[in-house]
Amino acid sequence: MASTTGTTGTGTAARTTVRGRLTALGRAEVFLLARNRTAVFVSLLMPAAMVLAMKSALKQSVLDGTGLSVAGAALTGGIGIVLIQAVYMNLVSSYVARREDLVLKRLRTGEVTDPEILVGTALPSVALALAQTVVIVVAGTAFFGLAAPQRPELLLAGLLLGVVLLAALAAATSVVTRTVQTSQLTTLPLFFISMMGSGLFVPLEVMPDPMASVCELLPVTGVMTLVRTGWLGGAGGSDLLVAAVTGLAWTGFAVFAVQRRFRWDPRR
């Protein structure tokens, strides 16, 4: 058997770094994601199917006067669907699975900090979502006649805000989710609200005014406004400000909720 002796203590041993710890966690999560066929299937195919469905369902006449084309509405909506599917829905089940398998509890005994555990677990899902977004943008400009992103910095800001917001909302949703199976239920409210109210399926521009103003305050609407404007142009300064502020406010709220209420142990 191997020797148990040798250097006891860490005076000289190399300390781990944040980057090293996140890499280790992230790599393990990549293996886990790759071995979860259902999650990969849903993450990859659902957005494509939804974009195609939207494209055939939306009529140009509906969008008249909004400045949006059918392809523009469908593909930017597709980015929103990617964020919800790959980041939010995937992560709720990841967080719940790790909690129920006592993995979170075990990780908390080590050097990795609480935020690092949540971020490390999220890394592969976030990477998958960003990669799919790149595919959507490339496909949009190459095959669907859309222009290259008008304001890339806005698109990027919207994506980053979306990733952080939806990861935080996923962690918050895991609190009320007992099992991986029930995560299919607990993720539905945000999914539907965002589909209908945040401009993923129905652009806010076609809604009557009072309804649109309410919908502007929904969690994902701000992110969608930034993403859509970043790619297609359009919205002006004050709209963007409202979008950024609501997005940041929801993110702050979600992070606060996670700090206060996140469960690291299974319920007993």
């Binding site: 250097t7 860490t10 000289t12 041993a13 190399a14 300390r15 781990t16 090293g20 710890r21 890499t23 280790a24 966690l25 790599r27 393990a28 293996f31 886990l32 071995r35 979860n36 699975a97 790790r98 398998d101 006592l102 993995v103 509890k105 075990r106 990780l107 005994t109 080590g110 050097e111 990795v112």
Partner: peptide, 28 residues
Amino acid sequence: GVMLQEGGFPSELTVTETVRMWAGCTSG
């Protein structure tokens, strides 16, 4: 070093992958 009465590791990882993950989070 801590061994909990009840702690877990992701069930779909191999033993080696699990040790590597933990090693990346452990000094020396």
